[in-house]
Simulated assay, not measured.
Amino acid sequence: MTLLLPRRSGVCFLLVAGLMGLLTQIASAPAASAKPLPCIDENQQCRGQPLPATVEHLTGEAWKLDVKGKQTPLQEGMSIDEQEGVKTSPSAFVSLSLGDGSRVVLPSSSHITLHLNAKRPEGAEADEVQVMARQGVRIQKQGTLTSIDLLPAPRLLGQSGQTDNVPVWQLIMKPIEGATGYRAQVATDAAFLDIKQEQFSSTPEVKFSGLKAFFYHVRLSAYDAQGLEGEAGVYDIFYYPRTTHVQ
């Protein structure tokens, strides 16, 4: 699957990915304290050079791929340049900081390669479909593209927990008609750049284990029969696991 992500700088990234989760792109203004970056002269405007990208947050195990596909364990602060890639394990999350001030968050079980100034080959044709607000499109190898109404964001009804050596935190959502699965992410930041855990469930109940006491941001969503992820609802929750004390 090939995804073209337009940048505010007018430059595109070609992310050649085998995604099993959601790829989230979050744009933000460059930090004022950041060092001067190489610029792209486009229409007489000096724009920040998006690449190389920098690994800003890393949770779990992931790898950097060089142009020949050689894998190196990924670390925070590592640079990812053009034609290099990132591969994440089933329990990993990575956020990349780009030179133009934007961010890209990679989910678990992802594999992407960065390309600068990606253009559609001459003569290539592409199906077009109008996607309105609260709609989505499932991309398939064959067939007609059709827009589909997305499921609403799940409503959080309550939470519970289990006291043990490894505390368990359970979130309970209101069932959504037409949903075949649910997804919940827990992050320490409101932008969900530093995701700590992610869980999928066929029921509107998800469980997290091993989380420490913290003020977490929780993002909930549901999937329909087509596999499209619906709208997301975000909750801010202070989680304080009780521990067992033996005297």
Results as ranks from 00 to 15, higher is better:
S109A: 14
A27T: 13
T54N: 05
G123Y: 14
A118T: 03
L145D: 10
L145F: 04
G123H: 06
T24V: 13
S89L: 13
G143D: 07
T144H: 08
R134D: 13
L15Y: 09
D127N: 12
T59D: 01
P38G: 02
L23R: 03
S147R: 07
T113L: 15
G85F: 12
P38I: 01
P90I: 10
V55H: 07
T54G: 01
L150W: 04
I26S: 13
A92R: 06
T24G: 00
L151K: 02
L74R: 02
A34K: 07
T113A: 12
V94T: 01
D41V: 10
G101E: 00
C39R: 03
D149Y: 10
K70D: 13
A153Q: 03
Q45K: 06
G143M: 09
S28I: 07
D41Q: 11
A133G: 05
N117K: 03
S95I: 02
G99W: 01
M132N: 14
A27D: 15
E56N: 04
Q83L: 13
P73W: 09
P73N: 08
A118W: 08
Q71P: 01
H57V: 02
L98P: 09
G143V: 08
E122K: 15
I112W: 10
A17I: 11
L19P: 05
E42A: 08
K35C: 05
A17R: 12
V94C: 00
E61H: 05
K141M: 04
I26Y: 12
A27M: 02
T144C: 05
L96D: 07
V94E: 02
D149F: 09
